[in-house]
Computed example of a mutant assay.
Amino acid sequence: MPKPFSAIPFTGIPFPKTEYDRRQKKVLAAVASANLDALVVTAHGHLRYLTGYDGMGGYFAPFPLILVPGRAPTYVVREYEVDTVRATSCIDEIISYTQQQDFSKVCADVLRRYGLHGRRVGLELGCWNLAAADVSALQAQLPDLKIADATRLVASVAAVKSELELEAMRNAMAMTDLAVRTFQQSLREGVTETKVAETIEEEVKKAGGQLAQFYSLGFGERTRLAHGVPAHHPIRNNEPAMVEIGGAKHGYAAGVVRSAVLGRHPETEVLHDLAVEALEAAIGAIKPGETASAVDAAARKVIARSGRSQVFRHRTGYQTGIHWSERGNLSLEPGAADILEAGMTLHMPLILFSENGYLFGTSEQVLVTERGAEILSTTPHTLYQA
């Protein structure tokens, strides 16, 4: 007789079942407010938020979590992954399909069984892990299904963190700060990006932590590369260095950007000063009830006043939590009408472009509180000079 899943080492859900029940209840309330009859969740970050399972088996075809008011959640997953989903999620009702082409039929069968074939159902049309072909195949199975875009629905609920989530974010940030200190202390002439990356990973592992799956690190001319991965490239005297890195806990990532100069590099040093000023203005604008666009505008005002508006070519920040980011999350950008609430966590990377193409800057991971913004990192966002 097979052993119960509880006997498998390192399985289970990271938070109490009551925490997932709370999340699902809030999402279902948002479903009702959006005048939807059901929600089909497919984004990996949202699946992990609502179930505990990381969703990674859905690289082959979607793993829809079907939420219907008055019913227990139903997970539709590949048969190959059923035991993993059962062992690492809080979902009891799991229905499987075998091949990629079976996804739409099995998902449609569940929706039909729940009387949703002619109803209004939300799909995460703007998130990762749901392709246009998946939507078309589902619509072909259920021609009367009224599909609505629910890209922002789970994200809007997940934006406000519980105390358990904030604890995970703080634990993640402790590893981020360790990574940043290791980055700074490792800078010496001739050391390569890969060697510094290896040292960071060793120190974080030694401390019992882990890093988010992706991070960027570059020296000298390679700081021109957005999201550049470490290479066997050494730093020389009078060159800049920049890292964007985050620790992770239960899938919650808390990333920051930190920059340094080995010796002196006037071009990037001046750029960094501007990034710090813009970042601090944006942080100062954060408070409950403020719009996301107003925070973004505070940073842009500083940069415009410098006469160098062309150096800032992206948004001021974005919602954080499970995974580094997810499409459809709250974004601090021009025109964004989202209202900040206490309990939200935001990453605010003020990375600027120099005249010669260097990308350089700084960031903070902040918690929105009733009093304003609480900075979660303990490493200063000022320039580190080695």
Rank of each mutant, 00 (worst) to 15 (best):
P2Y: 14
R23Y: 03
T362Q: 06
E326N: 09
V180E: 03
A179M: 04
E370K: 12
Y49L: 12
L67H: 01
E124G: 12
G284F: 04
A231L: 08
P2R: 15
Q365W: 07
I245H: 11
R188C: 08
D296V: 01
I66W: 00
R23E: 09
E19F: 03
P380R: 08
M169I: 15
L138C: 09
L350M: 09
S306F: 05
G321P: 14
A132E: 12
K161H: 13
T199W: 07
G357K: 08
R181C: 07
Q24T: 13
E269P: 00
S309P: 02
F312Y: 15
T369H: 02
C107P: 03
L178V: 07
Q184P: 05
T11S: 14
A148C: 10
G321I: 13
G307I: 06
E193K: 02
G52W: 00
E374N: 07
I235V: 13
I91A: 07
G307R: 04
A336V: 02
I286N: 04
P230L: 01
S162Y: 01
R22F: 07
A282C: 02
L50A: 09
E165F: 04
A43S: 06
A253I: 15
L65D: 00
L28R: 05
M348R: 05
A38P: 04
R23P: 02
T18D: 14
D21P: 02
E189P: 14
G12Q: 07
G126Y: 01
I245C: 14
A292E: 13
L274D: 07
T11E: 12
G246K: 05
V276H: 00
V27M: 01
L367V: 01
G220R: 02
G126H: 01
T176N: 10
F312C: 11
V276L: 04
E333K: 05
V110T: 05
R152C: 06
H250E: 03
G328T: 12
E244T: 15
Y384C: 12
L359E: 04
A32K: 14
S156E: 15
Y318M: 15
I339F: 05
E198K: 12
P334S: 00
I66H: 00
H233L: 08
G343R: 05
R224Q: 12
N237V: 09
F312W: 12
I245P: 03
A336T: 05
G126D: 04
A158F: 14
V257W: 04
I66K: 00
Q365T: 15
H46T: 08
A133R: 12
V68W: 00
D134R: 00
F5N: 15
P349A: 03
V180H: 05
A294M: 08
L67Q: 00
F10Y: 09
A275K: 00
A32N: 06
R78W: 09
S6G: 11
E280L: 02
P143T: 10
P234Q: 04
R113N: 10
E202K: 15
T345I: 13
V85H: 01
S6E: 15
L274V: 12
R188F: 11
C127E: 11
I351E: 04
A159G: 15
R86D: 08
S309V: 12
S89E: 00
L125Q: 12
V41R: 00
T182H: 03
I286A: 08
A34W: 03
